[in-house]
Simulated scan of single mutants.
Amino acid sequence: MRLFIIVLLGLLAWLQYDFWYGKNGMNEYTAVEESVALQEKANAELHQRNQQMYAEIKDLHGGKEAVEERARTDLGLVKPGETFVRVVGDNN
């Protein structure tokens, strides 16, 4: 009977060791869980950025105001009849 109890305790110890430290054990599970949480956060940020880009694309397709704004800010274009004034400050 004692041998049977010792074998069962040994089996229990081995199963506990395998559960906590073995392949696909609890340590790996927590590491993968943290990795998944980081990836979900990165995906959420990318999804938000994509939504902003889709809104900008929709705005560019839909109206002249967005195209005009881009032309003015990025290319420095001026409408006919307008005067372009550039103010340069001191670098002090």
Score class of each variant (00 low, 15 high):
residue 72 R to E: 11
residue 23 K to W: 09
residue 33 E to R: 12
residue 22 G to S: 01
residue 44 A to V: 04
residue 54 Y to E: 09
residue 19 F to G: 03
residue 18 D to Y: 03
residue 26 M to N: 08
residue 12 L to Q: 05
residue 49 R to W: 04
residue 42 A to N: 06
residue 76 G to S: 01
residue 48 Q to T: 14
residue 13 A to N: 03
residue 11 L to C: 10
residue 61 H to W: 12
residue 11 L to H: 05
residue 59 D to L: 08
residue 50 N to S: 11
residue 21 Y to Q: 09
residue 61 H to L: 12
residue 69 E to T: 15
residue 72 R to I: 07
residue 48 Q to S: 10
residue 12 L to M: 08
residue 37 A to R: 13
residue 43 N to M: 11
residue 30 T to G: 01
residue 39 Q to P: 02
residue 48 Q to I: 07
residue 24 N to H: 15
residue 14 W to E: 05
residue 74 D to R: 06
residue 24 N to T: 09
residue 23 K to I: 11
residue 67 V to E: 03
residue 17 Y to P: 00
residue 76 G to I: 00
residue 16 Q to R: 06
residue 67 V to I: 15
residue 68 E to T: 15
residue 51 Q to E: 15
residue 56 E to V: 07
residue 44 A to G: 04
residue 42 A to I: 05
residue 47 H to Y: 10
residue 77 L to N: 04
residue 51 Q to S: 15
residue 13 A to T: 07
residue 53 M to D: 06
residue 59 D to M: 05
residue 39 Q to K: 15
residue 56 E to H: 14
residue 72 R to H: 06
residue 72 R to P: 01
residue 58 K to Y: 08
residue 24 N to V: 04
residue 46 L to D: 06
residue 31 A to Y: 11
residue 27 N to M: 13
residue 79 K to R: 14
residue 19 F to M: 08
residue 27 N to F: 13
residue 45 E to C: 02
residue 67 V to T: 05
residue 35 S to C: 09
residue 71 A to D: 01
residue 46 L to N: 10
residue 70 R to H: 14
residue 73 T to H: 05
residue 75 L to T: 01
residue 64 K to Q: 10
residue 45 E to N: 11
residue 26 M to I: 11
residue 13 A to M: 04
residue 38 L to R: 14
residue 55 A to R: 10
residue 50 N to Y: 12
residue 69 E to Y: 12
residue 65 E to V: 06
residue 38 L to M: 09
residue 27 N to S: 10
residue 29 Y to N: 06
residue 60 L to P: 01
residue 61 H to N: 13
residue 36 V to Y: 12
residue 40 E to A: 09
residue 30 T to P: 01
residue 18 D to T: 04
residue 35 S to Y: 11
residue 66 A to I: 03
residue 36 V to A: 08
residue 56 E to P: 01
residue 26 M to G: 04
residue 59 D to H: 07
residue 58 K to E: 15
residue 61 H to F: 08
residue 55 A to L: 07
residue 79 K to Q: 07
residue 39 Q to W: 15
residue 15 L to E: 07
residue 54 Y to I: 07
residue 58 K to H: 14
residue 32 V to P: 00
residue 26 M to C: 05
residue 55 A to Q: 13
residue 42 A to D: 07
residue 35 S to M: 08
